[in-house]
Design a protein around this nucleic acid. Structure first.
Lengths: 144, 144
DNA sequence: TCATTTACCTAGTGTGTCAATATGAATTAT
DNA sequence: ATAATTCATATTGACACACTAGGTAAATGA
């Protein structure tokens, strides 16, 4: 019942690009330094974000990554799902799965459905823009 | 971000004991048959529930397991936490952990805290009694 | 007393995921 | 041409997951 490092790093990575990429694309090396995450690991994560169409990439010197949409268009849930896969708490709630044979009589399913709603309620409520605002509120003493 | 089989089975196991154990203790063999879970695996799960003081055991013929308290005294969260460990979505929210060095400047932490609250809000809201009632509402056509 | 039924305990096993590293190729600005 | 960057794939070690196996201990009752 944990968010993996991939998910957590992806969020920090996206936030880092949002904050530092308003004029030039952000190279992974810079993010890696700011966030204390290895470039190599970030490469894996960003490749998933590129595939998912969340960021675009520019190769070569002066290259890097850029958000495709406005920060307010990215919910936390979108980012997490892209790198972690679905966030549903049990497999039988997965999209495209028609559930187990006990479905009808399964009272615990009711719990899992509510849990799923609760999780979605949080991760789909906040966007990158919210995170940026919170970051600003904290002042410039702290670099994210 | 998944509830493991241990957690899901533990819930079904506790519910099975709650429903079938009002007069006699419930042997694992019976639960295993009703729930289609191996006795061996249930043994592991129940041992954790015994250690946690959620159920008591009686050995020998006519033995089995009994709830120690009323069904309404067991939240879903208590049961899940006993067999799964903490349900917090990120390690830095774990009890007794003083958090990572980025704590202060970590805006994502705010998300994780809300997520934690949301999860707790669901699993600590419902009890075994609720599950029993739902089960009854479904009629006797279905055996849990 | 002895067989049977139950709980209890410890270890093992195959599979997969997590959290990275490593190596190298392709692209592009200067 | 060189350096900076992204892109692609493989590998690694540790650990967790989902079980299974084998045996011990206690209680019952015939």
């Amino acid at each position: 019942m944990k968010i993996s490092t991939k998910g957590r790093y992806a969020l920090r990575l996206m936030l880092d690009i949002a904050i530092n990429g308003s004029v030039n694309p952000v190279p992974l090396k810079d993010t890696a330094e700011r966030q204390s995450i290895s470039v190599k690991y970030l490469e894996q994560i960003i490749s998933s974000l590129v595939r998912g169409g969340l960021v675009s990439s520019i190769r070569g010197p002066q290259g890097g990554y850029r958000l495709i949409k406005a920060p307010s268009e990215y919910t936390v849930g979108m980012i997490l799902r892209q790198v972690e896969g679905s966030l549903v708490p049990v497999a039988c709630l997965e999209d495209g799965v028609e559930g187990c044979s006990r479905q009808i009589e399964c009272v615990t399913l009711r719990i899992w459905k509510e849990l799923d709603q609760a999780i979605r309620g949080v991760v789909d409520k906040y966007t990158l823009e919210d995170l940026m605002i919170w970051q600003e509120e904290m002042g410039d003493n702290y670099v994210i």
